[in-house]
Amino acid sequence: MLAWIGSVQPLLLGAVLLWSAQAKLFSRYAAAHARRTALAPLLGEDRAVLAYRTLAGVEAVLGAALVLPGLVRLEAVAATALSTGFLGYLAYAKIKDPKASCGCLSAQPIPINGRSFGRAGLMLAGSVLALVSGAAWPGAFAAHPVAGVALLLAEFAAIVVFSPEFDEHWLMPLRRLYARLSHPLASPGAFDVPLESTVDQLHKSSAWRDLARSVTSDVREHWDEADWRVLVYSARYAGATASAVFAVPRLRYDPQAVRAAIVDENGGTLAAVESHAQPEYAV
């Protein structure tokens, strides 16, 4: 049982290594990404790029050798060494630079986490099984065609689950489907106009632009008055502290209707502004 299971592992190992190598070699972001992997602080930026490319080359050669039958024991030794080394690298990198990307199966920056270790552990287990078995995969498939295919599919599925690089192909669609079916952000019942949209409209008015440079604070307070929302800011007007009061249409979009007044600390109105169609700024 263990023998045939072990003998199909080179196919899994080879396919994963080939995938990993092509992602490292052919992504246009590969060099930049190499500098952001945990290799960079370990080796220095320039050597990290070289090490990244070299690793990709080793993965490509070993991956191709594993997929092709022959020299099983030797390849399994090499795969075990590579998997052990990679697991060690992950552990060391996690301790030395916890925020770094692993630089694993793609050029996407993905931090080292439990999934990285799960995948590296799976690769190591596969390598050890192949080493113990020592048999070539064509024989195993001839003896156990259905079980062999099922096992490989299950193992590939496990690699995919452990690989954030593949999330957008299965996890994201699942989450989108969940959102479409359950509408988790739907808000039942009445929902007031958010302050942000009122501020947005205010910023599109000429009244705001005429007064903005006098305004010294963010929104201090606001309240609704019939069809209007009133926003109060602090302002500096003619050298004195005052309030800049804006009235913005609450339920309709009409920035030209925005009005403003500057009110001093005693409640006297120093100035009032109506919005108007505005010319472009010089800048």
């Binding site: 000429s206 009244a207 005429d210 008055e225 209007w228 009133v230 109060v232 309030s243 009061v245 804006f246 009235a247 009005r259 403003a260 007044a261 009110v263 409640g267 109105t269 100035a271 009032a272 502004v273 109506e274 919005s275 108007h276």
Partner: peptide, 16 residues
């Protein structure tokens, strides 16, 4: 209400 009437009352409006 004082601030509201300052901004919405029409008597004091001047051009920008």
């Amino acid at each position: 209400s004082l601030l509201t009437s300052a901004v919405l009352g029409s008597a004091t409006l001047v051009g920008a």
